[in-house]
């Protein structure tokens, strides 16, 4: 990326003024639309001082919300890891009819509104849903329980890991795996000794993004949660509840924890891009 081509006709001075103006425009836009809102979260959270902030975080509501958020992510993310690897393996090493359709289906949750993701589970498992009467007859509840939160979160985050792995595994090809097989490696041996080391950084990258989304998801879980404090409110839902109760500091205190999670994710993501660029997929447009 060589940025210093000599301008051919214009005098240098006006070119530099133009550069500066464009840079200032870009920085200004991002400052106004991205950085200022981020700063607001922390300023509002600390508005009444540090003790109030810590107090808001230590309330039982926030603690149980943190526990639930961690729990939902701890179930949804590993399931997505297995899905992502399986999907990428089948999509990149084999030819089969309907492959393009499968790829489109994997991408679908990206373009579907989170509210739809919640709605479809209500229509499936809710009292008036497909399985509603059957579930009720057997005394099983899914909607308004943590199970529904996991399902909705899985729907939303399903593409994250597969989308990171598919382009990378496509670029890497099958040669090394084939060599391992020819040399006598078993299927799992080949996977753990050859494939996994090749994709580990991309996998980690996908897991980071998947986890951030799983912990921060709001729309989908709010539809299926029923907002039972202490039982079905994850951290983003706790933010909404407190905000609606006019607990301004409390809402922003919980929000600041989520914002920190976001910043840590951004930092780790940037580090991986910088340190292991060659082992990550060239970024597919809009993959997250």
């Amino acid at each position: 990326m060589n940025a210093t081509t000599i301008p051919l006709r214009q005098p240098r001075r006006s070119r530099r003024v133009l550069h500066l103006a464009l840079i200032l425009c870009a920085v200004g836009f991002m400052g106004l639309f991205l950085i200022l809102p981020l700063a607001t979260v922390f300023v509002e959270a600390l508005r009444k001082g540090l003790p109030m902030y810590l107090d808001a975080i230590a309330q039982p509501g926030s603690l149980s919300a943190m526990r639930l958020t961690l729990w939902v992510a701890a179930v949804a993310v590993p399931l997505n890891i297995v899905f992502g690897i399986a999907a990428a393996w089948s999509m990149t090493h084999f030819r089969f009819p309907g492959k393009a359709l499968l790829g489109a289906l994997i991408d679908l949750p990206f373009s579907v509104s989170p509210v739809i993701a919640g709605l479809i589970y209500v229509l499936l498992f809710g009292a008036q849903g497909w399985f509603g009467p059957w579930l009720e007859a057997h005394g099983i509840r899914i909607i308004f329980t943590a199970t529904a939160l996991v399902l909705a979160t899985m729907f939303i985050t399903l593409p994250f890991i597969a989308r990171e792995l598919i382009p990378l595994m496509q670029a890497q090809g099958s040669d090394e795996e084939e060599a391992a097989r020819v040399l006598g490696a078993g299927g799992w041996q080949m996977f753990f000794r050859v494939t996994l080391p090749k994709i580990r950084w991309a996998l980690l990258y996908g897991v980071l993004l998947c986890n951030a989304r799983a912990m921060g998801e709001f729309g989908a879980v709010s539809v299926v949660s029923g907002m039972i404090r202490g039982l079905t409110t994850t951290m983003p839902l706790e933010v909404e509840m407190r905000y609606n109760e006019y607990d301004h500091v409390g809402a922003f205190a919980v929000a600041s924890l989520l914002a920190m999670l976001g910043l840590v994710t951004l930092g780790a993501k940037t580090f991986l891009e910088w340190r292991h660029r060659g082992e990550l997929a060239a970024h597919a447009p809009g993959s997250h």
């Binding site: 979260v41 709001f218 839902l237 929000a255 914002a259 951004l266």
Partner: peptide
């Protein structure tokens, strides 16, 4: 640039 991806939507909303 990726901040809107990383910041949960509810947080962005109240901010």
């Amino acid at each position: 640039v990726d901040l809107p991806f990383a910041l949960p939507t509810a947080v962005a909303g109240i901010a």
